[in-house]
């Protein structure tokens, strides 16, 4: 039973509304980058912004006012360096105050840091940041939910670069072995590591086949196509099915700000006042282009 955390009929936003929220999420993210003096992992935040929007504003059955509800879907951010984008997406769903994030991010005693900490910020599901750790934890949560007979899902967002970590594949094997159809991985396939374009260094391809070989159901979509994200969520197998699903989201690192897109210099950075205006203008231009 999940009635107390489920989306109610007609409550879910439309694709157009979700696109609007994704724009707002990117805009708020850029503003934070313009406020905070330190570096923000802006490239991998922007590549995942549509995924965060689709999950927190459409997919996940969660209640921001009842964060311990046992029937809630669990969301694990395995690519922990995208925490700030998650915080903002969650604030827009009502978990936190955006002003609180912007005003305290990265400061002494703030709950909002570069990588999410469950102890300091109970609204997140786990303390993550070291790559390759999220999916194993998600397997444990999925086993627990399955054992209790609960119908919730455990959703884990990974970066594709992160899947170079061997522990991801240990978890992939464990998930299939335990027939965890209540486990869903989203991979932000932005094809960039911190210092390289992935395929130049690491033979990720044939990437979807690697997941298939581990016994997962594989869905491949454009990770910036909100309708495709919504459809992927709608089409997920029932949580009591026996195969885990990976949704491989083809994305662009820095998506929405043309001078950051696929640019290795923008893995992480901060924005001065001028850069901020330039980035916001680029974001607006990108929206106009998409609308046309």
């Amino acid at each position: 039973m999940r009635d107390d955390v489920s989306w109610q009929e007609g409550e879910r936003p439309s694709v157009a509304e979700l696109e609007e929220r994704a724009f707002e999420l990117r805009s708020k993210l850029l503003h934070l980058c313009g406020t905070y003096e330190g570096a923000v992992h802006i490239g991998g935040d922007l590549s995942a912004a549509d995924i965060f929007t689709a999950l927190f504003h459409y997919g996940l059955h969660v209640d921001p006012h009842d964060i311990s509800n046992p029937h809630r879907d669990r969301f694990l951010l395995s690519k922990g360096h995208a925490a700030v984008c998650m915080y903002i997406a969650m604030s827009m769903r009502g978990f936190f105050s955006y002003d609180g994030i912007v005003e305290t991010y990265g400061q002494l005693d703030s709950a909002y840091g570069m990588h999410p900490c469950k102890v300091q910020l109970p609204g997140v599901e786990a303390s993550t940041g070291s790559l390759g750790h999220g999916l194993p934890i998600a397997v444990g949560m999925a086993l627990s939910g399955r054992h209790r007979g609960d119908a919730h899902r455990v959703v884990c967002l990974l970066g594709d670069g992160e899947t170079g970590e061997g522990s991801v594949w240990e978890a992939a094997m464990a998930a299939r072995s335990n027939e965890l159809g209540n486990l869903v991985a989203f991979v932000d396939r932005n094809r960039q590591l911190m210092t390289s374009h992935a395929e130049e260094r690491i033979a990720f391809e044939p990437y979807p086949d690697k997941w298939r070989a581990f016994g997962w159901d594989v869905v491949e979509i454009d990770g910036h196509d909100m309708a495709a994200l919504v459809k992927a969520i709608d089409d997920l197998p029932a949580p009591d099915s026996d195969r885990p699903t990976v949704v491989i989201c083809e994305t662009v690192k820095g998506k929405g700000v043309d001078f950051m897109e696929r640019n290795l210099a923008w893995h992480a950075g901060s924005l001065g006042a001028e850069d901020l205006q330039r980035a916001l203008a680029a974001l607006e231009a990108s929206r106009q282009k998409e609308t046309v």
């Binding site: 786990a126 194993p136 934890i137 444990g140 949560m141 086993l143 627990s144 978890a171 464990a174």
Partner: peptide, 11 residues
């Protein structure tokens, strides 16, 4: 993954 799963169960 054995320890990671344990963490997930404990959470």
């Amino acid at each position: 993954v054995c320890v990671g799963i344990a963490a997930g169960l404990a959470y």
